[in-house]
Computed example of a mutant assay.
Amino acid sequence: MRIGAHVDPTDPLDAAVGREAETVQFFLSDPQGWKSPEPRADAEQLRAADIDVFIHAPYVINVATLNNRIRIPSRKLLVAHATAAATVGAKGLIVHGGHVNSGDDIAVGIDNWRKTFAYAAESGGFATPVLIENTAGGGNAVARRFDVLARLWDAVGEYGVGFCLDTCHAHAGGEDLLDIVDRVRAITGRIDLIHANDSKDGFDSGRDRHDNLGHGKIDPELVVAVVRAAGAPVVVETPGGTEGQAADIAFLRDRVGR
């Protein structure tokens, strides 16, 4: 099990050293923008390093939506990021499950996800494995409640889609962490990455605000139990920069090994 952090994209390898991280996750472009990634000068070093690399897709991507002006550019941007992620040797591209607008049929949003993978498969598939991440808020979200997540996986599971489990998102989204690994695996058959985050807000708040482990509303031993049970690579997306994330990594490394 390799533990690391989401870091600034400027120099991920240096950020890993400062945190004693074995895994890094970062953005390849503005997370709130629609611009495709530019080639990275350190791509070769990232591929050669003994560090597991994960890329997070921009937050603006929403392939579930019925709005063509967002869905079609989202598909194109997801492909562009998967292609760019492969150049840095990324093990996965994390993307939020997205949502449909109020009044829209969520079944159509789920089918839009299926079409995204079906279209990609016609061209040989995504260059980097796509990991869909559970989300914290929204009554029309595709990957917040696990009953809807099960419907999503019925539609996309045949394409070998990966899953990223975020502990803050699950807690804030109203899913109990106590038996969550078993419940996720019963749906997806896999967990490819854990985002080990505490939450500033209460259970089922619908608010996506991360906190350092042991400083928020989640019992830190529950996060440890999730990490231990999943046996997947771990990324902390917590505040506090190098110091805060290094402490969270050390906390997990100490307790998971027990």
Rank of each mutant, 00 (worst) to 15 (best):
T135F: 03
I61S: 09
I51W: 01
G174R: 14
H210L: 03
A127E: 04
H96C: 01
E175I: 05
L93C: 09
R185V: 12
V234N: 09
V60G: 06
A143G: 07
I180Q: 10
E122S: 15
R207F: 01
G103N: 04
S102L: 13
D254W: 00
P9C: 14
R71N: 06
V256D: 12
V234Y: 08
A247I: 03
G97L: 10
R40D: 08
D192T: 01
Y159W: 10
I106R: 14
F163T: 15
A150I: 00
P37L: 04
N101H: 14
G4P: 08
V226H: 07
P233A: 10
A5M: 06
N68C: 02
N197Q: 10
L165G: 07
N67T: 13
P73Q: 03
Q45F: 00
A86H: 02
T87P: 05
P129S: 07
V236C: 03
V79F: 07
D248L: 00
R40V: 06
A80P: 05
I132V: 11
F126W: 03
P220D: 04
G125K: 14
I61Q: 07
K200N: 06
D198T: 07
F163R: 13
E237S: 11
R258I: 07
V108F: 07
S205P: 09
D42I: 13
L213D: 14
A49Y: 01
D14W: 01
S205K: 14
G98E: 11
V88G: 10
A150Q: 09
D50I: 05
W34L: 04
V79S: 14
G92E: 07
D104F: 01
D201N: 14
N212M: 08
G157Q: 01
G202E: 04
G214N: 08
W34E: 06
R75H: 14
G109T: 03
A21I: 04
R144K: 14
V100D: 11
L78P: 09
A85V: 11
H215W: 08
R258S: 12
D198M: 05
L213A: 14
F203D: 07
I70P: 08
T116M: 09
L66Y: 13
R190L: 05
F203Q: 11
V156A: 05
